[in-house]
Design a protein around this nucleic acid. Structure first.
Ligand SMILES: [Mn+2]
Ligand SMILES: [Mn+2]
Ligand SMILES: [Zn+2]
Ligand SMILES: [Zn+2]
Lengths: 141, 141
DNA sequence: GTCCTTATTGAAATTGTTTTTCAATTATAA
DNA sequence: TTATAATTGAAAAACAATTTCAATAAGGAC
């Protein structure tokens, strides 16, 4: 069988393993940057030419529900998906090529404390995204 | 005349002051939470019943270009607008009632330093949003 | 105030995206 | 194999945002 982890997860969730799901899964697993549904569609049809866009939407929804991919918010347009990070991580995006990297270790407790006191809010969660230039995009290309 | 600041800014940008712009401006200036274009439309029509949704889109675009309002990204749906913060500020949102508050004073230099070294990225900017419960929503209401 | 120019407007049409519906297909367990 | 029910893609529908365009009206010139 030699199933990869995501497919095993899908199966564990009661899903059938279809050509469509394999194609979308492979695309998302190997993507270095966040992809829109249409981008996933175009890439995945190279593996399964009969694939429909509707199924891409449905599969992305499923993968997101399983925590295998996550939505990436961008200044203009927020419908791109990326492999999810493990545990508590955030994303660092290259402004030029779009490459996405996860990082961890942000320590914001002191900030929460102070902001909570100043505003009367009880801070529950946060959302942090960094932007920059990746190694390749810095050095020539 | 007694024009308020946003209208003055619009005029300085060469805009004419119309009923539509006054209505949208007033709505956005007094909103305690981020509003979608349709929400702005509904609220602003109470002041200018002839207002069209297209003009709401156009006016929001203009106000955003002038830096008077900003887009707020939310897990489901990212087309809401809010008064912009002054200088370098971020947003704190109430998960229950949507109330939005600006705060400042996040110091992330050490994080950037470390993440930059680990990833090879040159960090250019960042995006931070906090979620929680506002005073009212914590205490009964 | 009146006139003139031109930015602005709203309705309608268009475009683009996401969701729903449904009959045909097909993965999987028996 | 066969039976069953999940899954699929096409088409339609719903929704969101943008473009087009003739009518309107803001604001400067007088
Ligand atoms: Mn964090
Ligand atoms: Mn900051
Ligand atoms: Zn790059
Ligand atoms: Zn609240």
């Amino acid at each position: 069988m030699a199933e990869n982890l995501w497919l095993t997860q899908l199966r564990a969730d009661g899903c059938r393993l279809t050509a469509a799901r394999r194609a979308v899964t492979e695309v998302m697993q190997s993507a270095e940057r966040a992809l829109t549904p249409v981008e996933v569609y175009d890439a995945a049809r190279k593996r399964d030419p009969r694939l429909g866009l509707v199924t891409v939407y449905r599969t992305l929804e499923k993968l997101e529900a399983l925590g295998l991919i996550q939505r990436v918010h961008h200044e203009q347009g927020c419908q791109a998906f990326l492999r999810a990070g493990v545990g508590h991580q955030h994303i660092l995006l290259c402004e030029r090529c779009g490459r996405a990297v996860h990082f961890e270790g942000d320590d914001l407790e002191a900030l929460f404390e102070r902001v909570g006191e100043q505003t009367g809010f009880e801070i529950k969660s946060h959302w942090l995204q960094l932007y920059g230039l990746c190694q390749d995009c810095r050095t020539g290309f």
